[in-house]
């Protein structure tokens, strides 16, 4: 019993002259703590937590919206780029087609023109040839007449005395016909 009472004495002994233990509860402090804390809670709730938390959520929403918007814009841009690519390919194809078409057209035109000019040239050559032939024949006929005349004249001159002119012309013509054939 003695031991226990001494132990209790030790536990509850207040060291030093000032006394007091960390476990002492002062009712005044309890009251002031309640007052202070409740006052702090009310005042901070009004002036701080509401506006600050609102601002924070506002900013978070703003960031979220901005990110979503940026995402959307990027998707749109990507779509636009894809569209552009498609239309670019299309345009290129179109251009190729047009070039091909015009090349074909040019080729066709070329061959046409070439054929045209060839045939014209041929025609011209033919014309020229026939003209030349005609002229030749004409000239030949003229020459033949002239040669005949000259020959006849010469023969007339030579054979004036012994031969009749008409007989001689007939003879010469006969020879010339033979020559021709």
């Amino acid at each position: 019993m003695n031991t226990i009472s001494y132990l209790l004495l030790l536990v509850f002994s207040e060291g030093g002259e000032k006394g007091g233990s960390p476990l002492d509860v002062n009712p005044g402090v309890i009251l002031w703590t309640v007052v202070t804390f409740v006052f702090l809670l009310l005042i901070l709730k009004k002036i701080a937590w509401k506006p600050i938390l609102n601002s924070l959520s506002e900013r978070e929403n703003f960031i979220k919206d901005s990110l979503e918007k940026a995402d959307k814009a990027q998707k749109e841009a990507e779509k636009l780029i894809a569209d552009n690519k498609v239309s670019f390919v299309k345009a290129e194809e179109e251009a190729h087609k047009i070039i091909e078409q015009s090349r074909e057209l040019a080729e066709k035109l070329k061959t046409q023109i070439l054929a045209g000019s060839k045939s014209q040239a041929k025609k011209m050559i033919v014309d020229a040839t026939s003209e030349i032939e005609r002229k030749n024949a004409e000239a030949f006929n003229k020459l033949k007449d002239q040669v005949a005349d000259i020959a006849v004249n010469a023969a007339e001159k030579i054979l004036r005395e012994n031969l009749d002119k008409d007989k001689q012309v007939k003879l010469v013509n006969k020879y010339l016909d033979d020559l021709k054939n």
Binding site: G15, G16, E17, K18, P22, D24, N26, V29
Partner: peptide
């Protein structure tokens, strides 16, 4: 009782 430990408690206590 003899030793004065209040100098520690002085800083901690109200």
């Amino acid at each position: 009782k003899k030793q004065d430990t209040s100098w520690i408690m002085h800083h901690v206590l109200d």
